[in-house]
Design a protein around this nucleic acid. Structure first.
Lengths: 179, 179
DNA sequence: TTGATTGCAAATCGTTTGCACGAGA
DNA sequence: TCTCGTGCAAACGATTTGCAATCAA
């Protein structure tokens, strides 16, 4: 989960959601099947290794299973979350993203590239924000989302800038046609 | 926006804040009308003074304008955002919330009560998270959302606990009927 | 008056679900 | 074989939009 579920908490013994009870509940009692579709989804998630949206996953997985439908993607994502293989990633304002569960096992957050819209994991963040709370409030967890440019897009942006500057300089030269 | 574009906190002084919604910035170029519906929405937002969802706003504003429809709420919220009177608040999850724009003028974040689902503003947060970024990434802004119990719900929860304990204790007494 | 605004319903958009068919075990 | 899973389409919930009636300026 992106939601950091461990922080300041009242002495209130309460389990919450967590996948603590999964072992007993979700043992392969249901006889889960290994389908091409699910394998394709898994492959995509492993290869990309970053939080992805259902449509993103569909597009990528369609290259492996052309007739794959969006409904199947949603059903599998949900099932894989229940089994503990994936974790839902809730970003401000956007549709749900999903990432490999082991990534969610340790406290981390997300970075969203404002250019390519992709989401990346960010490790760290040992902050405790309980100091910010008004009196009487109790803190259970937090979500932190960073926005900016990923390395790739930042590089491209720089290249564009450089190009623009070059063109500008060129245009400024006396021999060139005046703008 | 809740998105902390923590570049510069523009002092942005508001003179008499009676209802001077349209100062110089929002010159009524479009000839906006003052409708009962919009007034009701504004009144609700001012009174509650916290980020609210469109349905929340509808419910509250219906007490002022009974025949108010959800579409009108959405249209007005959007218009009020464009005019700069309100700011959209994107919380991890999905539904957009709205809050008075002046609240968004300074860097702040949000707290969501996991019990009553209400959202509150949280001031502060002078952190800079750029240290968390991978090489090549650049940070523009961040969103921080805290989760827990608001003062009201925390109190209620304690009351419930106390009550449960009392009942338990009572049930344990020999004279009481066994549960 | 007159055109912006409303209310209602139909239309979207993302996501879920019903159902008959296809495919793992 | 015998279910479970898939694909497709209809259903859904949140938000938007078309349109005739309404109302503020």
């Amino acid at each position: 989960m992106n939601r950091a579920t461990h922080e300041h908490d009242i002495p209130h013994a309460h389990a919450g959601h967590g996948h603590a009870a999964h072992d007993a509940l979700n043992s392969p009692v249901h006889g889960e099947r290994a389908t091409r579709q699910r394998a394709a989804i898994r492959e995509v998630m492993v290869k990309e290794a970053r939080p992805m949206s259902p449509p993103e996953i569909l597009d990528a997985a369609k290259k492996l299973v052309p007739r794959l439908g969006i409904a199947t993607v949603y059903r599998n994502l949900k099932a894989m979350v229940e089994v503990g293989e994936l974790s839902p990633v809730q970003l401000p304002g956007n549709r749900l993203f999903y990432e490999l569960a082991h990534k969610a096992d340790h406290h981390h957050h997300h970075f969203r590239c404002e250019d390519c819209e992709r989401v990346f994991d960010i490790d760290g963040c040992d902050e405790t924000f309980s100091a910010l709370l008004p009196a009487g409030f109790t803190l259970h967890s937090h979500d932190l989302t960073l926005y900016g440019s990923c390395a790739e897009c930042a590089t491209k942006a720089l290249a564009r800038q450089a190009k623009a500057l070059a063109k500008q300089a060129k245009a400024a030269k006396p021999q060139s046609p005046a703008a």
